[in-house]
Design a protein around this nucleic acid. Structure first.
Lengths: 336, 336
DNA sequence: ATTGTAATCGGCAACGATTGCGTAGATTTT
DNA sequence: AAAATCTACGCAATCGTTGCCGATTACAAT
């Protein structure tokens, strides 16, 4: 059985009391230099390390923060996590990463697990399927610091950070228009997500600004958000089977962008015939074929900002009542 | 301050002792049905959930397992994690995921953090930079169950699962040979990794079997394992600048495969002039251009097998002394 | 010699949950 | 009616750590 040395062990071996050992290790002022030296040396010898579980129980602080994202395999999220970690580690916090695979049930389980494990705070990007935020509201009201990133919600008042999805979508759509396309379809993400609607608005505004009539039949919702390839292929096939078929597609999600490319490839479509632009943070998006123009979010920075917000909440001595929602701009990369 | 209901709270409210409440909640036989009913109902009302921290401290069991991988952004690992979770959740365990970014220091910190957090066991795929396994040996000797996957090491005797890297490399190299290539370069991964040498051996064996002389000048080590793009580009550039330049490249790592493709693209190389094949578990590898034949590992299955091994170790009543190293075969996907 | 005052350390309790043991009171047995 | 048995619950210890208070000692000030 795995059993590391404890303060008691040291106390017993050195014929001291646990409290003395504890204070000696933390360099307390009331302990003599000699005792400190003996304790420190013995502690090093037996490789003593304080038990974070016991500390968590006693202090109700764990110096760890919980991360809940839909999918690690999604580049955007793994980049955001890297950003979170870059700051968290620096500030002495550990991270506990969990993924929900866009399942509400899994999300509930993970969030509760993290809360019970007494993480000091929570960074969360909501799952597509979640519509009941009661469990989060509960935790938030009970005082658990929470920061939302990317897929944020209105129902809870706290710090949030997300991308300028409207402009991102606007710019991408505009670029398609400027390259001469007029019949621009939209592959949209799960409709309950905040980002989905913002991107839809950007798409519509761009059409309007360029006097292109909005055509509902060019919109396809992929409510499974690219987790289901078949859904996307069916949508693409359907779009391209129309008599007045689109000459471009704007895709409002990373995973759906990939699926759309795969669909176009498997349907053997001439890339010149149909232009595509979409959101993507894939680190190989520039190598894909058929190629697409893409809107890239500042994922790493978003992670950094989110965790900084969270640490402000956690380490603030007084309750914070003024919250901020930060919007990061996006980068449009056009195909050469 | 976030403060969930405790057993004491319930005891106080119901004028019972904590022990009675505890036993009532666990449906102990010595508690009257009436009391149980009262306790259960009140517990539900205040949304009581047992504190895992306290339980961990008392039982030295946490029903959580630690996962340590080099990089979440690497598809292979995020797929393996999905496999791990699929089994772990089913069996009532939580997972705590950490990544090292191939840094030994980070690996040490993460492993210790997990051990101290009293995870019941550890699933680890080693970082490229690690050469001192002392800290793992220590934990293992102290009785912490550990299972290695993918990037395994010989120095510790326990369950392990990895891919048949030799055959994977052999088959890929063979496919290049059969397509008429004779001057096959090798972009190799960090040399201290187990998988690197196995793949090198497979490459060499294929050359030998087809009577192609081994040429050391066609081997390039990317010791940073594709974490550094420039290293790969330099290697590719160097290879292709030679007078007797290769007509094919076999790449022994996922990340390096991607970097190599990018290098070839940025150097404007004709895909027909130089064929490439490499290990990759990217979920978009079939959409890349220039395209490559690829060796895909059974990542999801590997995760499942690893966690099953770990649970055997954790839940075994008697110490296990007979260990197994499972080798999964790989899938070769040729470009059409 | 007495009091004051640091310096140095130990004891107790608590964080939340579990559990062996003890026991008051009710019920049954003799 | 006395003794034995049961029922249903409480007490206290435990896990590792630390905060608070108290105790001991030495040494200086009075």
């Amino acid at each position: 059985m795995y059993k590391p040395a404890t303060i008691k062990d040291i106390a017993l071996a050195l014929k001291l009391s646990p409290s003395t050992v504890s204070r000696a290790l933390r360099d307390g002022y009331e302990i003599s230099t000699a005792t400190k030296k003996v304790v420190m040396e013995y502690a090093k010898k037996v490789n003593y390390q304080s038990n974070p579980i016991a500390l968590s129980l006693k202090n109700r602080r764990s110096y760890s923060i919980g991360i809940v994202v839909p999918k690690l395999a999604n580049s955007f999220f793994s980049q955001a996590i890297a950003g979170i970690e870059s700051i968290a580690y620096e500030r002495g916090y550990h991270t506990i990463i969990t993924q929900t695979h866009d399942s509400s049930e899994r999300e509930l389980i993970n969030v509760n697990h993290l809360a019970q494990r007494s993480v000091d705070g929570l960074l969360i990007s909501m799952s597509a399927g979640t519509s009941d935020y009661g469990f989060l509201k509960q935790l938030h009201n009970d005082g658990l610091p929470i920061v939302f990133f990317d897929r944020i919600i209105d129902e809870i008042e706290t710090f949030k950070v997300t991308s300028d999805n409207f402009s991102g979508a606007y710019n991408a759509t505009e670029s398609l228009i400027k390259s001469g396309r007029k019949k621009i379809a939209l592959l949209s993400n799960a409709p309950q997500l905040s980002i989905t609607n913002e991107r839809l608005s950007g798409y519509m505004k761009a059409l309007a600004d360029y006097h292109i009539p909005f055509r509902a039949e060019l919109i396809r919702n992929c409510s499974k958000g690219g987790n289901d390839y078949q859904e996307v292929e069916d949508a693409v096939k359907d779009l391209l089977a129309a008599t007045d078929k689109p000459d471009a597609i704007f895709i409002s999600s990373d995973r759906i962008s990939i699926s759309c490319i795969r669909a176009l490839k498997s349907l053997n479509f001439d890339p010149k015939e149909i232009a595509i632009a979409g959101f993507s943070n894939s680190d190989v998006v520039d190598l894909l074929h058929p190629s697409l123009s893409y809107v890239k979010q500042k994922s790493f920075e978003m992670g950094q900002i989110a965790v900084e917000m969270l640490l402000r909440l956690i380490e603030s001595k007084y309750p914070i009542t003024e919250f901020e929602t930060k919007i990061l701009d996006t980068e449009l990369h056009l195909i050469k």
